[in-house]
């Protein structure tokens, strides 16, 4: 299940940021991915909410600084990602 969630998450991020899903690691961030701007940041959050049926607050969205932060946040909402 956790691998499946991680694959879905990577697919969301890869599609929105126009990168290869296989290239994504927890360290990937707006500093390393050109298209990760504030609008795409929101798009990722909204897509994650829809995919996993959860809600993110504005403060939670703002606190996400890289893929690892998003994975950790999802874990706290019982969406376990490997």
């Amino acid at each position: 299940m956790s691998h499946e969630n991680r694959s879905k998450l990577n697919e969301i991020i890869a599609t929105l940021l126009e990168v290869e899903a296989e290239s994504l690691s927890n360290d990937c961030s707006p500093e390393t991915i050109e298209h990760w701007d504030s609008l795409n940041h929101l798009n990722i959050c909204v897509a994650v909410e829809q995919e996993f049926g959860i809600t993110l607050t504005t403060d939670e969205m703002v606190a996400i600084r890289n893929v690892g932060d998003l994975v950790a946040l999802l874990n706290t909402k019982n969406v376990v990602c490997a």
Partner: peptide, 8 residues
């Protein structure tokens, strides 16, 4: 504070 604002 908010790295996603780099491009802005």
């Amino acid at each position: 504070i908010a790295p996603m604002f780099r491009s802005a």
